[in-house]
Design a protein around this nucleic acid. Structure first.
Lengths: 151, 151
DNA sequence: TATCACATTAGATATAATCTAAATCCTTCA
DNA sequence: TGAAGGATTTAGATTATATCTAATGTGATA
């Protein structure tokens, strides 16, 4: 049962299961399309208008801190959020800014020498290009130049 | 000669070498520490107060579009900019938000099936954790939990 | 039921980035 | 040379995104 599993993961993360917090988590679980904070706020209040903007932001921050949600910064656009259900990489569309999940696979870690005193916590792989919707009508400026020199 | 090489790369990117544009490019070349737009604006005007904020943003956008500069979005903070001198990956500090360059190495591409109709243009690897300065005094909240499950 | 820490709220505020419309600067070419 | 037109720059207004503030509410515990 979904409701119960959300409650459990909130509590495992040291967070009370409040209606507003639950709603954010449920919305992210149901909408895997990486919504922005504004979209989450709207979506949640569409169902049950009981949450303020500040609360939505507060809860998102707490959820990220607790490791239950991933935040994806996108150049020049609002951040996207993502329930951490399964490990995956991200594809970001250069044209519309949408974020999509990509199949997960192991990424080689940096040579230990190059880390120095840094503490490594995460490695993530980000693919960029044009999503399925944008590929056909992709901006001509961006078009020509540098298709996959991608590494 | 640096001046000449900047001029050349601007023109190769289809951009006139104006004093303001040159100044942005020169600043980025000399300051490899991934400054924000605001820092670039200040730094450039410290030397020669002739550039407006709008121009700095305009030029940064043009330089990114021309592929001469890389923009790095950082969660909850201003974007950072980076002259594309050599290929490299990025390390983002979870505590101070600073962006550092990491040695470049090949990243395995996604399985062709998982791309579908998407057009892949770039693959980038982002490391997260605590930078050299922050590692000793890293925030206790962030501390405990998930050190490198990192992939 | 009193208490206290955690949560929520509306609205103000801060920060980051873009837009607007006018002015200026180049390049071209007659 | 100098007129035309596009590219560039500018100050300031505006938008977009996110956080802060101070008051209020809520629930677990004793």
């Amino acid at each position: 049962m979904v409701a119960e599993s959300i409650r459990r993961s909130l509590e495992a993360g040291g967070l009370r299961c409040t209606p507003q917090r639950y709603a954010v988590m449920a919305f992210l679980t149901e909408h895997a399309r990486h919504p922005t904070a504004a979209e989450i706020f709207e979506g949640v209040n569409l169902v049950d208008p009981r949450s303020s903007r500040a609360t939505t932001y507060n809860n998102l921050r707490d959820l990220v801190k607790a490791g239950l949600v991933r935040e994806v910064a996108v150049e020049g656009r609002a951040a996207r959020f993502d329930a951490k259900i399964m490990r995956h990489h991200h594809f970001i569309c250069d044209r519309c800014g949408n974020v999509e999940d990509m199949e997960w696979y192991d990424v080689p870690r940096p040579a230990s020498g190059s880390l120095g005193k840094r503490v490594l916590r995460e490695c993530e792989l980000i693919f960029r290009g044009f999503c399925t919707k944008c590929a056909p009508r992709r901006a001509s400026r961006l078009d020509a130049a540098r298709r996959v020199d991608a590494g």
